[in-house]
Design a protein around this nucleic acid. Structure first.
Length: 276
DNA sequence: CATTACCTGCAA
DNA sequence: TTGCAGGTAATG
């Protein structure tokens, strides 16, 4: 479910609710794999009593920064969610982890498909974690030149390259399809064949679709909810993703669906001209 | 690069 | 019953 705009929306919602709070305990933990090998009892002991210094985002990770300098990283993968409740709420069928807050609130990590992961990182592990991910696409420092440098020398197809988090952090299947649609690039174009104008359009499109996604508080197709449990509205702005057989908003040609890099891929076969 | 695995739920 | 799903890691 969640790509950069969804994770950013959750982080902005959680930040004022959690900053300054203290973790009082873990009252529910029903799927040990969620903790990625950390024994549940040890995890509970490790976070209990920790004050929360802040909530941030890196790529598609939610970062809950603790007073000890350790960081809880939450990756929602496909169906994960992180929702705050002002008071105690019974865990639902998909609730995998509940953090109790000293002031009486709770944070529920929900995940129907159980792919999501919550990890407790020591300060010493943070540099390697940050370095394993490509640059954030939205800060001013991420210039067109920087984008071009990231694509320079790459051999593969443009869509799998956009989804590679080591190249660029934050795009997923929805926003990759939307960025390619907006820049009129076929998802199977080889990166090596992109000219200066192609990369300039793609740079603008990536930043546009992500910024618009944040402004619309994320795209809710099915599972995604924000920190308050509310849906986003960006699904109304999609031109390609999930629009199979619908007329292209630019030319009327039916949107096609193919598989690229193992992912369902939506594009306009007229506007996004196939690679020669 | 493609394929498989990880899991559950939903729609065709 | 089959296929598909917003992500990533492991394997060929």
């Amino acid at each position: 479910m969640p790509e950069l705009p969804e994770v950013e929306t959750i982080v902005r919602g959680l930040r004022p609710l959690l900053t300054g709070q203290t973790i009082a305990g873990v009252s529910h933990s029903d799927w040990p794999a969620t903790l990625a090998g950390y024994p549940p009892a040890a995890f509970a002991a490790a976070v209990t009593g920790e004050p929360i210094q802040g909530v941030d985002r890196r790529a598609k990770y939610i970062l809950i920064v603790l007073g000890s300098g350790r960081v809880l990283t939450v990756h929602l993968r496909m169906t994960g969610g992180l929702v705050h409740h002002a008071g105690p709420v019974a865990p639902g069928k998909a609730t995998r982890l509940v953090l109790d807050l000293a002031a009486g609130g709770q944070v529920h990590f929900t995940d129907a498909r159980k792919f999501g992961r919550v990890r407790l990182l020591d300060p010493a592990a943070l540099p390697a974690f940050f370095d394993s991910l490509g640059p954030e696409p939205l800060p001013d420092e991420f210039t067109l030149d920087r984008f071009r440098a990231r694509l320079q020398g790459r051999r593969g197809l443009i869509k799998p390259t956009l989804l590679d988090q080591r190249v660029l952090a934050g795009l997923g299947n929805i926003y990759a399809d939307e960025a390619l649609y907006r820049s009129r690039l076929h998802p199977q174009r080889s990166v090596a064949t992109l000219d200066a104008d192609d990369t300039a359009r793609l740079y603008e499109a990536v930043r546009f679709v992500l910024t618009q996604g944040i402004a619309n508080r994320g795209t809710t197709i099915s599972d995604y909810r924000d920190a308050q449990g509310e849906q986003g509205s960006n699904q109304r702005q999609l031109h390609a993703y999930g629009q199979t057989d619908q007329p292209c908003d630019r030319c009327g040609t039916p949107i096609a669906r193919i598989v690229v890099g193992g992912r369902g891929t939506h594009f306009c076969p007229q506007c996004q001209v196939p690679p020669g």
